[in-house]
Write a protein that binds this DNA or RNA. Structure first.
Lengths: 113, 113
DNA sequence: GTATTATATTCCTTGACATGTATATTCCTG
DNA sequence: CAGGAATATACATGTCAAGGAATATAATAC
């Protein structure tokens, strides 16, 4: 598994992460909410835990899992290199559309094509 | 392949994307810069193109590939749900560290190199 | 035309991983 | 203590994607 990117490539793991944004959950809760078999949940949680996406604490027979943000921040950092590019790109597109057609209400007025 | 997340799970593809941030490139340039075999480059470019990460134009026998930001913005949108969480988390951590030790150089001065 | 450069595609092999089923472990309750 | 709930692990299996090697396609140069 290894990389942050591979870990989040799996849709069920992304679903688990999204579920944990709101609050920590036990394995059983995840199982019921996401309607996936318990071994699948445990396996995905293992991957997430080993990659640092989640942490767990013991509560009797339960394990409560909660989000840990660091790997997600790492992902965010990788994305950062593209942000400059895409804002430039959006600007260029807007200018282009403004020139083609005046109906885009981005700022103030616009002219006829 | 299908999903944005699977596409960027592959390290060579991420390298290609990073390379294209600065400017568009031909297949041969990518091949040389990243030192990967030409068929590998072409295959990864195909995946990237079909997922909308890159576009190409023909220049004689060359194809020039350039970045297209939309899929990356999609990724950014997915990440957004976690930002609130992690800023809260960082704040809590900072408060905690502040209480333990005052040497965190977040703003102005710093002590120890 | 032929040769050459640039890129794409095909075929094959291999390895990784997701899933299901079954079972193990751990803790709690009576 | 036995029984059951909650979670983890083991094993077998199928799928799929990455990589290498060879070849095909396309444009150019001579």
């Amino acid at each position: 598994m290894e990389s942050v990117f591979e870990v989040i490539a799996e849709p069920n793991r992304r679903a688990i992460l999204s579920l944990l944004v709101s609050s920590e959950r036990s394995v059983g809760e995840i199982e019921r909410r996401l309607r996936m078999p318990q071994p699948a949940v445990s396996k995905h949680l293992r991957v997430l835990r080993e990659a640092g996406f989640v942490e767990s604490t013991v509560d009797a027979q339960r394990r409560l899992y909660r989000l840990n943000p660091e790997p997600l921040q790492e992902l965010d950092a990788w994305l950062a290199q593209f942000r400059r590019f895409w804002s430039a790109h959006v600007d260029a597109l807007e200018r282009h559309l403004d020139r083609m057609d005046s109906s885009t209400p981005t700022r103030k007025k616009a002219k006829k094509q």
